[in-house]
């Protein structure tokens, strides 16, 4: 049996992959037992993969190996902090888990300062764009009429969208209300563009599976499909 499997590993792998793909796609017709079987198989497989990753890629190289192979015994001091996280399941001692959670939240909040500066401060500077045509100066390129109009639209959109996202000001002025409404419209246009882009992403993933079914799988039986 084992010999048969090892001798035909490639073919078995392909047949299993085809069955899984078609099984999961069967929900497109309607919810059914075949889909349910593959859904549970998929979840189980993913769980197994997660456990494998936790040991092979995280705990073994970063913890076990450090302590027992490299002799860095002091790494064990991190263990109580990690184990305290499991006390979240105890109603009596879950306050101890909050110490670890607080530690992790504090760490990520601290990093957010640098992340915020690194991501957004440069973008603040890049909004400083002239809204009238200008000649080239130093390393800066010339701003043409169309460039200036672009920059003006850019500034108007920033103002409109940011106005829409103010929550703590009671807006009575009609101008501000209209600005915020324009912001909402602009957002909807942007969401439309994102939607289009995502259709492409979804199609790419679908095409990849179809490529597998037709060219790789179908191609083994009908050579001209390859």
């Amino acid at each position: 049996m084992l010999d048969f499997i090892s001798a035909n590993a490639g073919a078995i792998q392909m047949w299993v992959a085809v069955a899984c793909t078609l099984g999961i796609y069967s929900i497109l017709y309607k919810e059914n037992k075949i889909y349910r079987f593959f859904e549970h198989a998929f979840i189980g497989l993913a769980m197994g993969w997660t456990i494998r990753t936790a040991w092979v890629d995280v705990l073994y190289p970063n913890f076990y190996q450090r302590i027992f192979h490299e002799g860095r015994w002091w790494w064990i001091l991190a263990l109580p902090l990690g184990l305290m996280l499991y006390l979240i399941y105890s109603r009596k001692y879950n306050w101890m888990a909050r110490i670890s959670i607080g530690f992790l939240l504090g760490l990520s909040a601290g990093q957010t300062f640098q992340s915020f500066a690194g991501l957004y401060y440069k973008q603040i500077v890049t909004t400083f764009k002239p809204i009238v045509p200008q000649a080239a100066e130093g390393s800066m390129k010339a701003v043409t009429l169309s460039g200036a109009i672009n920059n003006l639209i850019f500034l108007a959109i920033i103002i409109c969208v940011m106005t829409y996202f103010f929550f703590s000001f009671e807006v009575k002025s009609k101008v501000v209300q209209k600005t915020a409404n324009t912001g909402r419209w602009v957002l909807m246009i942007a969401f439309g563009a994102i939607f289009g882009s995502t259709i492409m992403a979804r199609m790419a993933l679908f095409i990849s599976r179809m490529d597998f079914l037709i060219k790789q799988f179908g191609g083994t039986f009908v050579p001209w499909l390859k």
Partner: peptide
């Protein structure tokens, strides 16, 4: 937002 608007105005008047 204020910094962005100021930045645009100053860059428009004084250059980059």
């Amino acid at each position: 937002l204020l910094i962005c608007i100021l930045g645009v105005l100053i860059t428009t008047i004084m250059g980059p």
